[in-house]
Computed example of a mutant assay.
Amino acid sequence: MSTVQAAHPTNKFKLAVFWLYVTLPLAWGVFNTLSQAMKLFK
């Protein structure tokens, strides 16, 4: 059995910044969509 190791270990700070870069606009879009949809039901 052999284990495969990454050639470059993942930098956890860069990974956290990447996920913030992805999730913040996504969360903003979901929030805006839901707030606009709620106007239809009032």
Rank of each mutant, 00 (worst) to 15 (best):
M1K: 07
M1W: 10
M1V: 08
M1Y: 11
S2N: 03
T3R: 05
T3Q: 05
V4Q: 02
V4I: 07
V4F: 03
V4A: 06
Q5C: 00
Q5G: 00
Q5D: 00
Q5N: 07
A6R: 09
A6W: 02
A7H: 00
A7M: 06
H8F: 09
H8N: 14
H8T: 13
P9R: 09
P9C: 01
P9F: 02
P9D: 09
T10G: 01
T10Y: 14
K12C: 02
K12R: 10
K12V: 11
K12I: 06
K12D: 12
F13P: 00
F13H: 03
F13K: 05
F13Q: 10
F13V: 13
F13N: 06
F13D: 15
K14N: 09
L15K: 02
L15D: 07
L15I: 01
A16C: 06
A16N: 06
A16M: 08
V17C: 05
V17Q: 07
V17W: 08
F18C: 00
F18S: 01
F18T: 04
F18G: 04
F18Q: 04
F18D: 02
F18E: 05
F18A: 09
W19E: 14
W19A: 14
W19Y: 15
W19I: 14
L20W: 10
L20A: 13
Y21T: 14
Y21I: 11
Y21K: 09
Y21W: 13
V22W: 04
V22R: 07
T23F: 14
T23C: 12
L24H: 03
L24S: 12
P25T: 04
L26M: 13
L26D: 03
L26V: 11
A27H: 04
A27L: 15
A27N: 07
A27Q: 08
W28E: 11
W28D: 11
G29S: 11
G29C: 11
G29H: 08
V30E: 03
F31M: 06
F31E: 00
N32R: 15
N32G: 03
T33P: 00
T33M: 08
T33S: 11
L34R: 14
L34V: 12
L34M: 14
S35P: 00
A37F: 04
A37C: 06
A37R: 06
M38R: 15
M38G: 15
M38I: 08
K39Y: 10
K39D: 14
K39G: 06
K39R: 09
K39H: 10
L40F: 13
F41H: 05
F41K: 09
F41S: 10
K42H: 14
K42Q: 13
K42M: 12
K42G: 11
K42F: 13
